[in-house]
């Protein structure tokens, strides 16, 4: 679960004040708002990439406000993927496990599993140079999921895709959410994405997060789902708890 309590962020003249919201385990949260409203800043604060002035960030009940990004176990997918330009896709998928000193055969098995799940087996020996937008997003998703994160943060992952590819990636995200039970926080300004994916929809406006709508969850994790191995997700009650601050 992701819980943000009275979070304040200051970056120069830009401020977010006393933001509070929560997304229950396994739910897909959509954070919406106008350009420049601070959606990405808030997402990066949750991932540990932006300093927090006050307030708390809790992931599955644990206060991680001052933890390093590496210790939070969050899979992060930035806009356009930000793939490592000098690495083959295979190495990108295994990167997080290599850092964790996981034995090579296990890394290879995980890479093969992700490649099948994301349908990128034919790309494993290529570098990001020349990959299409959709392929890049699949690789970025695989790279973020490889170590079995409890939380997935996605920053406008569909914004640069054509309609057909966007629909494919939306299906993929829905499937990942259902199969892995990972809790997702997805930043977008696209209402269509929100309708297709959101269990809980959050609106960031004038420095405050409000609940825009709370949809009946149809992406809740299936029992015994075929998850990315390593971190079984705690299952909470369906429906998000969103507080207006």
């Amino acid at each position: 679960m992701i819980a943000v309590e009275n979070l304040s962020i200051e970056l120069g003249s830009f401020r977010l004040r006393e933001i509070s919201f929560s997304i229950e385990p396994g739910q897909y949260g959509l954070l919406m708002g106008k350009t420049g409203s601070g959606k990405t800043t808030l997402l990066e604060a949750v991932a540990g990439l932006k300093p927090v002035r006050q307030g708390r960030i809790l992931l599955h009940g644990q206060d991680v406000t001052h933890w390093k990004p590496a210790d939070r176990n969050i899979g992060y997918v930035p806009q356009d993927g930000a793939l490592f330009t000098t690495m083959q896709v295979r190495d990108q998928l295994g990167f997080a496990l290599t850092i964790r000193h996981v034995p090579r055969p296990k890394i290879d098995r995980r890479v093969d599993y992700l490649a099948r799940m994301l349908d990128i087996g034919h790309l494993l020996d290529r570098t990001p140079h020349g990959l299409s937008g959709g392929e890049k997003q699949r690789v970025a998703l695989g790279r973020a999921l490889a170590f079995g994160p409890q939380v997935l943060c996605l920053d406008e992952p569909l914004s640069a895709l054509d309609d057909q590819t966007r629909d494919q990636i939306i299906d993929l995200l829905r499937r990942i959410s259902r199969e892995t039970g990972v809790t997702c926080l997805h930043v977008t300004h696209n209402l269509e994405e929100a309708r297709a994916l959101a269990d809980v929809q959050l609106l960031l406006q004038d420095g405050q997060v409000t609940v825009s709508s709370c949809l009946e969850s149809n992406h809740a994790p299936a029992k015994g789902a075929n998850s990315v191995p390593s971190s079984p997700q705690p299952r909470g009650p369906s429906g998000a708890v969103v507080r207006q601050s």
Partner: peptide
């Protein structure tokens, strides 16, 4: 952002620098 992604994937600053930034 590539460096930031490396940090979220478990790298220390030195690892992100050595494995992601320096090769580029």
């Amino acid at each position: 952002r590539r460096e930031q992604v490396a940090l979220t994937l478990g790298c220390s600053r030195a690892q992100a620098f050595g494995r992601v930034v320096l090769p580029e």
